[in-house]
């Protein structure tokens, strides 16, 4: 039983990932303001990036840059001494994609504001319903 509690506590990175993911999902579903929804979407994305970077982490490993010793002609590298850089490279792409989606989402929110004069979702829905009843 103690072993299990120790294993659960040692995965604190993944518990943070789950917490942030649920915070983002809550904001996307429950929040009424469009800007708040977009902030929730961004928190969700960063939680996924944190998950991938946590997967690449190793104990007692250094950053993935090769060390060169002067005077040594041959190098012997141990992969266990370096953090796995593959998830980092994948997540580098994900950060750029997240900024692109943020820009598109904010420009759509600006268009919605120009059309309806508000960013609150219930007011927008009420205006759409009123317009459809009139026509």
């Amino acid at each position: 039983m103690d072993d299990m509690i120790a294993i659960i506590l040692s995965k604190y990175n993944y518990w943070t990932v789950i917490t942030l993911m649920m915070i983002g999902l809550y904001a996307m579903i429950v929040k009424n303001n469009l800007i708040k929804k977009i902030i929730g979407m961004n928190i969700f994305q960063t939680s996924i990036i944190l998950f991938y970077v946590s997967m690449g982490m190793k104990k007692d490993a250094t950053i993935p840059i090769l060390e060169h010793h002067p005077g040594m002609q041959e190098h012997v590298y141990h992969a266990a001494d370096y953090i796995n850089p593959l998830p980092h490279v994948l997540m580098l792409t994900a950060i750029v994609v997240s900024v692109a989606t943020l820009g598109v989402a904010l420009s759509l929110a600006l268009k919605v504001y120009d059309q309806y004069g508000t960013l609150e979702e219930d007011e927008i829905n009420a205006k759409i319903r009123k317009a459809s009843v009139k026509s």
């Binding site: 970077v53 490993a61 980092h88 580098l92 750029v96």
Partner: peptide
Amino acid sequence: VMGAVDVAFTEASVG
């Protein structure tokens, strides 16, 4: 802190 320096400075500038 977790050793992903390239991700860290991309996030600092972009995020």
